[in-house]
Write a protein that binds this DNA or RNA. Structure first.
Length: 525
RNA sequence: GCCAGAGUAGCUCAGGGGUAGAGCAGAGGACUCAUAAGCCUUUGGUCGCAGGUUCAAUUCCUGCCUCUGGCACCA
């Protein structure tokens, strides 16, 4: 059984509708997934929802629904969202699913048995109205709590804790020995700085069921549900476990899930794509949990940044928001996928501007790629009736060099660099048209052979571009293939080898891929 | 406060001890296959401030200023 490349997004908390940040993380993960598949690797891409917790319980009650029904309703929106983005995820995990509950409980039982947990008192200030403990940070400057919390009382609560203390040094060693474990490097430095300058406190992993019923009960103490860490993070191994992953079967022998015909080997995850806000959970708690369970650590934690809009924080209260679905409806899915991966490198924060979106659409998609394909096919149609001439390799070497570079970028999840390099192929082809001037050659019958050569190079470049953009712009890739009248998905980088389009083949009719747009984009809901 | 990182052309950024670079935006030009797209040429910068090392600093060092990120519950 060969191991499948396993990549995940964070699971999103179901307390509303998906926004730009969610869309971004999912698109990035999807592009990496598609690129890996194109490189010839089997890939399993997982995304999903985090459904337990106080907020969901409260929201459900407020709507007069059971928490499960409330989650089911929202889950259908989130699943629809994966379709809108044309994600190629193989599964969609929900933490309220029985398979997830089974895995969480098996892990809790094992760690409890092996002495990783202990009970202890938690003393704190509790707001009955908000049903939450408050911290010193919640105090106002005068030492009182905001009236929104209602009456605040000091409360003592027993809970279970997970011992973290013994794990600090090996984790530091692991991060230092594996430079790619946390990317980008400056995030890695932050985690190392934190681990070296702080002593890890044990982690509170439960809430009393009396206070929070919407959660997974501890298998060894039904008065408690587990809280956040052993619920949400475990989603990453739920699906491998459910698919019969041999490492998980060995680590959790008592786990009882329906047997599968063809077990898949997924764990360890190759990449967890997450937002920078949850880096500590993934780079500190999660590895320690895995080590305690007896499982290998993921290969990489890839932390992306956040989007701003016009240089300011995106916030619902100021109305400074971007609705990804509105943008997609207006500009098309590929334009959206292109903008977020081309504009922002994975890691830093980015700045969404409508003008920037329109500018990239116009310059790079419409005038760059779109116009190249259109003018190339138009000339082939006009001068040769759409019949591909015999093969010529004038642009072969340059293209091959770019393809090789792009393969390297794909392999390292360097999406922005991959796009830049891909567009260098577009640029080169446009220059080639100016240099060879096929429209002049066409006027001179003596130049017919030269015109054939040029037209072949252009048509073949268009075909290769369909392969190179496929992970990013899947719809456009298919449309180029359709205009070339070629079968297939252009979803294997191996197809980017020069000489793939057969001489004598008749291409279809050219149509603008990205129509010119003069209106600013609609980004508000 | 502490720990990182950054301050370079109008914008986004790359670079790096010895005549400052790219893309976009701006200006000019020749062309016409194409979505009036594309191509060529080109205007922009005392490389945050002040010192120091050096024959030579934007590049190394020190200090300062400004900004950003992190310092455990927001994609």
């Amino acid at each position: 059984m060969t191991k499948t490349f396993y990549i995940t997004t964070a699971i999103d908390y179901v307390n509303g509708q998906p926004h730009l940040g969610h869309a971004y993380e999912k698109v990035v993960t999807d592009v990496i997934s598609r690129a890996r598949r194109s490189l010839g690797q089997p890939v399993f891409f997982l995304t999903g929802l985090d459904e337990h917790g106080q907020k969901v319980q409260q929201a459900a009650v407020a709507e007069g629904k059971t928490p499960q029904a409330y989650c089911d309703d929202l889950a259908s929106d989130w699943i629809a969202f994966t379709k809108t983005l044309q994600l190629t995820n193989q599964d969609f995990v929900r933490t309220s699913q029985p398979r997830h509950k089974a895995v969480v409980q098996a892990i809790l039982a094992k760690l409890h048995r092996e002495g990783h947990f202990y009970q202890s008192e938690y003393r704190g200030f509790y707001s009955a109205r908000q049903e939450t403990f408050l911290t010193e940070k919640d105090r106002r400057p005068d030492g009182t709590f905001d009236p929104m919390y209602g009456e605040v009382t000091e409360l003592v609560e027993n809970n279970y804790y997970f011992r973290l203390g013994a794990h600090q040094q090996w984790l530091i060693d692991h991060i230092e020995a594996n430079p790619d474990f946390i990317k980008p490097a400056y995030r890695r430095n932050e985690v190392l700085g934190f681990l070296k300058n702080n002593t890890l406190e044990d982690l509170c992993i439960t809430r009393p069921a009396a206070r929070l019923s919407w959660g997974i009960p501890l298998p060894f103490d039904p008065d408690y549900v587990t809280y956040v860490w052993f619920d949400a993070l475990v989603n990453y191994i739920t699906v491998p476990a459910a698919l019969g992953d041999p490492l998980l079967a060995a680590a959790l022998p008592e786990l009882k899930l329906p047997s599968v015909e063809k077990p898949q080997s997924l764990w360890p995850a190759d990449i967890h794509v997450i937002g920078k806000d949850i880096l500590k959970f993934h780079a500190v708690y999660w590895p320690i949990m895995l080590k305690a369970i007896g499982l290998p650590l993921p290969g990489q934690i890839l932390a992306h940044g956040w989007w701003q809009k016009d240089g300011e924080k995106i916030s619902k209260s100021t109305g400074n928001i971007i609705d990804p679905i509105a943008v997609i409806n207006d500009w098309g899915l590929d334009a959206f996928r292109f903008y977020v991966t081309r504009e922002l490198d994975i890691g830093p924060d980015g700045n969404w501007t409508d003008a920037g979106f329109a500018s990239r659409y116009g310059a790079e998609l419409a005038n760059g790629l779109g116009n190249l394909v259109n003018r190339s096919l138009s000339m082939l149609k006009r001068y040769r009736g759409g019949v591909v001439p015999s093969q010529n390799d004038e642009l072969a070497a340059g293209t091959a060099e770019a393809v090789c570079k792009i393969a390297g970028h794909w392999d390292k999840s360097e999406l922005q660099d991959a796009l830049t390099t891909t567009w260098s192929v577009v640029k080169r082809a446009n220059e080639y048209i100016e240099q060879t001037a096929p429209f002049k050659l066409a006027k001179d019958p003596a130049q017919a052979a030269r015109l054939d050569e040029v037209l072949y190079n252009l048509t073949e470049t268009c075909r290769i571009l369909a392969v190179l953009i496929q992970p990013f712009l899947p719809q456009t890739s298919l449309r180029i293939m359709a205009q070339l009248n070629l079968p297939g998905q252009a979803d294997q980088l191996a197809e980017a080898k020069w000489g793939g389009i057969p001489p004598g083949h008749v291409v279809g009719d050219p149509l603008p891929l990205f129509p010119r747009r003069d209106q600013p984009p609609v980004t508000k809901a």
